[in-house]
Amino acid sequence: MSRLLVSILVALLASVPLWLTDFYYLHVLIVTGIFIVAAMSLNLLLGYTGQLSLGHVAFFGIGAYTSALVSLGFEVHILPDVTVGMAPKPVWFAMLCATAVAGLTGYAIGKLSFRVRGAYFVIVSISFAEVVRLVALNWVELTQGPMALNNIPALTLGFDGFELSFLRKPAFYLLVLTMLVVCYVIIARLVNSRAGRAMIALRENESLAMSVGIDVTRYLVVATVVSAAMAGMAGALYTHYIRIVDPDIFLFIYTVTMVIMVVTGGKGTLAGPIVGGVIFGIVPEVLRGMEIRPEVQWIAYGVLMVLVVYFLPRGIVPAIESYMSSRRRAPKGEAVAVAPEAPQQ
């Protein structure tokens, strides 16, 4: 997509609060937007390095909990007479902490779990998320366990006399949109850099990448850190929007939602998670609007997923791109260049 088109699209999206009077749709857009940021971060791992992380919700949840705890303040006993605590801090600072903590966790997990690949990596990532969930559930002194951290403050920016509150939906929507654009730019820069090419190289053929001197684990860890930090930021946004966080934030279904967004949209493409996210963020609302039983809504959702994979196995964005280039009757070579390489077996 050309830069102009992107700018127009962003401007169009930014104008939404001006003409969309029904705040419920704005709510749907906000939640969808937050999950798109999370899906974009997952795409960095899944799409660009080829590692299927099914524990991504852990980073999202760690971000949410960190931000909630820093903004609320906490105190825990590490040893019987050693307490660690923190007074409540401003929300913007809490969100930065969330990003940092999630990124650090990403570093540790990357170092640890990239000792294995493929199917093993899949389960290790699931295990990691499950352990984090159970810690959040059982470390009641810190997280309040299932009683949830509530009354989490909303984001306000500014100083005495001039405060910008993000409690209202239009302001929060614009904040999410800004984050989305920032993350998009970061990912675009990263994948087009030397590090990004190294990642794609190892996705395509790891042993070949290794043999030409690419430090595979290092680039995987870099990707995980950036990806985890972004997911943590998305989690922080989410927690200050919903304003409650409990261990259910680590539910597997949220990871599934992110994977659906990435794979149906087109993994390894910049626009993929956005397109997939918009569609699978809106579909449940369309289904909710129809007067059918909730089970049937779920069934329709599942069938739609399967159909998208069948008819557009590489995702929607690559399919549109190759359709467009075939319409332009470009020489064959160029059409192949636009579409990502066929997945290896």
């Binding site: 899944l46 299927l52 493929g118 199917a119 899949v122 599934v256 994977v259 659906i260 794979v263 149906t264 993994k267 039983r293 089970e295 049937v296 779920w298 069934i299 959702y301 599942g302 069938v303 739609l304 997923m305 399967v306 994979v309 069948y310 196995p313 997945p343 077996q345």
Partner: peptide
């Protein structure tokens, strides 16, 4: 139809099937 496809492509289909099957049971 998905022989030789990526692990995540087949997984997504299986997730779809999982959702459909579980809700069919409830229905």
């Amino acid at each position: 139809r998905l022989r030789g496809a990526d692990i995540d492509t087949t997984m997504l289909v299986m997730i779809g099937a999982w959702i459909v099957m579980q809700n069919t049971e409830q229905l």
